[in-house]
């Protein structure tokens, strides 16, 4: 029978006896900041390997000027510009989170890891904005017309 107490709401109380073991199992997988950072590192990493394979394969076109020009022209299509931006986001995240891991492992910065996390997060945001501007700019110029986007640091 479900008993309503202050620290245990009805729904949890009625299930607690049967799901106690499962609950403790899922506790380990509760997604917190560090876990999320690790999961994203893994996902972006696998994504970047896939990109690396396509990229190296695509560059075989360098042996023929016509094929290479066609490939680069294709890289300027809207969908590739969006992909280019997504690629930068993945690279910037993976690089900065990787740097965080290296600094903690090699320089023993674990006592400073909260501040390190925030600082590198800010650096990542700047890299994405400054580095991603060419892609955003080109998409904006295409959607809103020439001269509609500020060229900024281009």
């Amino acid at each position: 029978m479900a008993v309503d107490t202050q620290d245990r709401p009805t729904a949890t109380a009625s299930e607690s006896s049967t799901t106690a073991r499962q609950e403790s199992r899922f506790q380990r997988y509760r997604v917190r900041t560090g876990m999320f950072a690790w999961l994203m590192h893994r996902l972006t990493g696998v994504g970047l390997v896939v990109y690396l394979i396509i990229h190296i394969w695509g560059l075989t076109s360098l042996t023929d000027p016509e094929t290479f020009n066609a490939l680069i022209a294709k890289y300027h299509s809207p969908i590739f510009k969006v992909g280019e931006f997504a690629l930068l986001v993945a690279v910037a995240y993976h690089a900065m989170n990787g740097l965080r891991i290296v600094l903690i492992d090699f320089l023993g910065w674990s006592p400073k890891q909260k501040r390190l996390f925030v600082t590198l997060g800010a650096v990542t945001a700047i890299i994405i904005l400054v580095g991603g501007w060419p892609s955003i700019y080109s998409l904006g110029e295409w959607i809103f017309g020439p001269g509609s986007m500020p060229s900024l640091f281009l």
Binding site: I72, P78, S138
Partner: peptide, 9 residues
């Protein structure tokens, strides 16, 4: 730079 700030359709 081989990639420019331009969309080609």
């Amino acid at each position: 730079a081989s990639v420019t700030h331009e969309v080609v359709t």
